[in-house]
Simulated assay, not measured.
Amino acid sequence: MPVRPQAGPRPDATGLLLLLVTVIGWGLNWPAMKVLLEEVPPFSMRVVCATIGVSLLFAIAARRGEALSVPAGLFPRLVMISLLNVTAWMGLATFSLLWLAAAEATIVCYSMPVWAAIFAWPVLGERITAKRVLALALGLAGLAVLVLGRGVDVGMEKLPGVAVALSGAVLFSLGTVVTKRWPVAMPPASAAAWQTALGCTPLLVGAILTERPAPEEWSAQSWWLLLYGGLGPLGLCYLAWFAALRRLPASAAAAGTLLTPVVGVTAAAFFLGEPLGLRELVALGLIIGGVVLAIRG
């Protein structure tokens, strides 16, 4: 009697749900930030959201009984990772929206896994494969379509935004690889809270030196969006992401983040009326294709 092959392990439904919550929350934040920049200066926007998010994360860490202090000798590493993963990402991604539509900024920023695959060679010793070279080529082709798809003149106007968003994506990718090489041995909520707090400190300095926000003039809509940005993408989504990583294979979680730019582009078209035509779809397809190849290595 033939033996029936055993079925493989079933996907963790809770992990998949947590991943879905994460990518939806992160994706919706891009059009939200674009709207906020009409009233709230970029540094101030990030600082207010971070204050809400950090407060929530520390409260959750305390509720869970997690250690809130940074282990001895870990602080310099934590600062370096925070500058790459938070300061560069949150600051540069936000500023890119001054030149780019929310959909365009989302597409550029989520080329991150392509650059992470490149940095993995010198930092982690992972060899450069043909797939990774092709991934880089697809990612660059997607950026070219996004910038120059409507002509050189339009492309030059958007070039500063693409450069800023791309710098954020590259530095975040470097931070991801550095974190994998030298991990931060801290509980998840406490680690996220400390990284966000330390990473947003330079943004606070920037707000003090260059901006004169007038919170009393901000509309109710702006305050609701700031609350969402702090509680959702910077608070609960980070916790959901860490929880999903514990339940799902790393490759599956990384592939799942590809839904984030799809959510961001779709939400920007629905809520902001941004164009969602052939240029955006081709650029999104090329970059996602590159990211898939980079993940598979």
Rank of each mutant, 00 (worst) to 15 (best):
T257M: 09
V282E: 14
A294L: 08
G290S: 13
R150S: 11
E66D: 11
E38G: 04
S251D: 09
V164G: 15
A93T: 10
I287L: 11
L286Y: 07
A102F: 00
M90C: 05
G151V: 05
Y228V: 15
F58T: 15
V147Y: 13
W89I: 08
L92I: 04
K180R: 14
C237D: 04
W218H: 13
I295K: 09
F271D: 03
F43H: 03
L245R: 11
Q221T: 15
P31H: 00
I52L: 01
Y228R: 07
A103N: 11
R10A: 15
G151E: 08
Y238L: 14
L286N: 08
T176F: 03
A240W: 07
G175R: 11
F119L: 03
V40R: 01
P261H: 14
A267T: 14
P249V: 12
D153R: 13
I208F: 07
M90A: 07
P261M: 09
P275I: 14
M186S: 04
K180F: 00
A141M: 14
A269D: 12
T179E: 05
G8E: 08
L198W: 01
A165R: 12
G206V: 07
G25I: 01
A283M: 11
A253K: 02
W89K: 09
P122M: 03
T179Q: 10
A7N: 09
F43D: 01
L36Y: 01
G264S: 11
S251T: 10
V263E: 13
G256Y: 01
G290R: 06
G25N: 01
T257Q: 08
L83F: 02
C200D: 07
G65A: 06
A62S: 14
K158I: 04
L198P: 05
I107A: 02
Y110P: 08
L159W: 14
Y228M: 14
L245G: 14
A193H: 04
S167K: 04
G125I: 03
L234D: 02
W182I: 04
L148S: 07
A191Y: 01
A163W: 15
L204F: 12
G206P: 04
T266M: 13
A269R: 15
T129G: 01
G175H: 13
R64H: 13
P261V: 12
T129L: 05
L100F: 00
W26Y: 01
P188G: 10
E216V: 15
A101I: 00
C49N: 06
L245N: 12
L83K: 00
T266G: 13
V79T: 15
T87P: 11
L92C: 03
L226N: 03
V177M: 09
A192D: 08
V23C: 02
V40W: 02
V54N: 08
V35A: 08
G151Y: 12
T257C: 03
P11T: 11
E38I: 00
